[in-house]
Design a binder for these strands. Structure first.
Length: 483
RNA sequence: GGGGCCGUAGGCUAGCUUGGUAGACUGCGAGGCUUGGGCCCUCGCGACCCAGGUUCAAAUCCUGGCGGCCCCA
């Protein structure tokens, strides 16, 4: 039983999310935002491991779907960056430029990539000759740089995005590219499911598409402060990039056609969402799949019985690690068990394994799950099966709790007043009937102080009237405060 | 883009209005005592964001920079 005063609290997290987030990530050694350059943070060892595990999930999904991991240069010459007119217009105010080499001015200034389409296209031009070379699917995990002028937030709005996983593909036809977009949306869904992150998929409105895309599909989730956070996007780029970069292929009939490209990305915002959605006022709660440490074994020594307690704890520890479980043992005899409990709870270790004289006498071990702090004794002889089963239960419970959280903050309303109030109170995402015209979208943004996330993918016509112009609604629009 | 608040040991902070020895808690190190939810005691370590200015004297007042947070567009 968890004592009354120790019941899970989310007061700070809910009342002052920004502070909670920065403190928790710092104290748990996930992310240190004290680096003296605006919008730049550091991943210490423990956070780096979490990041690596998250990326590992993504890598395995991509590797198993025909992608190859590549690495393109950080520097993009101005001429390339500016080839696609709309792309450059959108990014020009947020590009960092390298203008000097030592003390001499560069002839052509070099951009720190804000994203890599313009670095990849010239190489595709060299690599693609005929239809047999298509499709090409590649990705890289790199830093990208954006000179954010608005407020920056640790991990959420940064100037160096350190964990930019960008996928790029080239196809022979519009339809192939379109199909690939659908597959990548499916791949991202799997990714978020693995991380226990709930999401809403929207087709971004025309005025908020990725610069140069013909269609942008975005994943959003809801943070504890009620704002929506974009955690992934998939873009159909059409021939908007292949034309200016002159990337053509030879078709079987002997003619040439420009390739059709797509791009899709996620960033460390995914990790921010994971932390924000699962954490509580004791610290992190990390889904077992990506937890740097899945189990911490804590011996509870008593005077006279220290020897056997430590010995048993070690046995349990090696049993766990021998099956590939990421376990550690905290044998520090200078620190009390209680203090260790708090320490590892802060770090979000999914399961704590306690071994004391009482357990030894009864032939059991005590398992405590991090999400609910529920404690139970399991037979010593069945440790491994009980443990793995518990990890599964924990993952599933975390996933459903997070989905429940999102579902409760997703509102479908029919009136502008209602929408406005929900947005103003920062209750989450609001979906309203919409006539489908861009002008009503921007009117709504003005009237509700919200941003338009977009509309459902392939939704049937919404019944009702557009809440902006009162015309018959043909679709829905999602609105929210955003980051 | 506009407005406001703020920056003190690794962390959280007191002191600033009214200029004059920077204090607590936590952490870290040593020792003792303990250990099923942050024990306690002793000793030690550790800080005024940066650059100018005012002043006999600046953490404190002024200007600028860097950095952080909040609100509004």
């Amino acid at each position: 039983m968890v004592p009354q005063h120790m019941e899970l609290q989310k007061k700070l997290k809910v009342e002052n999310f920004a502070e909670w987030f920065e403190q928790t990530t710092l104290h748990a050694m996930i992310y240190d935002y004290r680096f003296p350059v605006k919008g730049c943070g550091v991943w210490p060892g423990y956070g780096f491991k979490l990041r690596r595990n998250v990326l590992e999930v993504m890598r395995s999904l991509l590797d198993n779907s025909g992608h190859e991991e590549c690495l393109f240069p950080l520097l993009i010459p101005r001429g390339l960056l500016e080839k696609e007119a709309e792309h450059v217009r959108s990014f020009q105010e947020e590009v960092f430029w390298v203008t000097m080499g030592g003390s001499s001015e560069l002839g052509e200034k070099l951009a720190l990539r804000p994203t890599s389409e313009t670095a990849i296209m010239p190489m595709l031009k060299l690599w693609i000759r005929d239809y047999k070379d298509l499709p090409i699917k590649l990705y890289q995990v790199v830093s990208v740089f954006r000179y954010e002028t608005k407020a920056t937030h640790p991990m959420i709005r940064v100037r160096e995005v350190t964990t930019f996983k960008e996928g790029h593909s080239a196809h022979a036809t519009y339809e192939d590219a379109e199909k690939h977009v659908g597959e990548m949306v499916g791949l991202y869904k799997k990714f978020y499911e693995e991380l226990c992150i709930p999401y809403i998929v929207s087709k971004r409105p025309n005025w908020d598409k990725f610069a140069g895309a013909i269609c942008s599909i975005a994943f959003d989730t809801i943070m504890p402060d009620g704002r929506a956070l974009q955690i992934g996007t998939v873009h159909h780029l059409g021939q908007n990039f292949s034309k200016p970069f002159d990337v053509k292929y030879l078709k079987p009939d002997g003619t040439h056609e420009y390739v059709w490209t797509t791009s899709y990305g996620i960033s460390e915002r995914v990790i921010a969402a994971l932390i924000a959605l699962h954490g509580d006022d004791r610290g992190l709660v990390i889904p077992p799949k990506v937890a740097p440490i899945q189990a911490v074994v804590i011996p509870i020594p008593y005077k006279g019985r220290e020897g056997e307690v430590y010995e048993e704890a070690k046995k349990v520890y090696s049993e766990l690690t021998s099956t590939g479980i990421r376990a550690i043992i905290d044998e520090d005899d200078e620190e009390t068990p209680g203090s260790k409990f708090f320490k590892w709870e802060l770090k979000g270790v999914p399961v704590r394994v306690e071994i004391g004289p009482r357990d030894i006498d009864r032939g059991v071990v005590t398992l405590v799950r991090r999400d609910t702090l529920e404690r139970k004794s399991v037979a010593r002889s069945e440790l491994l099966t009980s443990f793995t089963a518990l990890l599964d239960v924990l993952s599933n419970d975390m996933r459903s709790a997070a989905w429940k959280y999102l579902d409760e903050r997703f509102y479908k309303v029919k009136s502008l007043d209602e929408a406005g109030e929900l947005i103003k109170a920062r209750r989450g995402i609001v979906e309203v009937p919409w006539c489908g015209r861009d002008e009503c979208g921007s009117t709504l943004e003005d009237n509700t102080e919200a941003r338009v996330l977009g509309s459902p993918l392939g939704a049937a016509a919404e019944k009702g009237k557009c809440i902006s112009c009162d015309r018959e609604a043909s679709n829905s629009l999602r609105l929210a405060k955003t980051y």
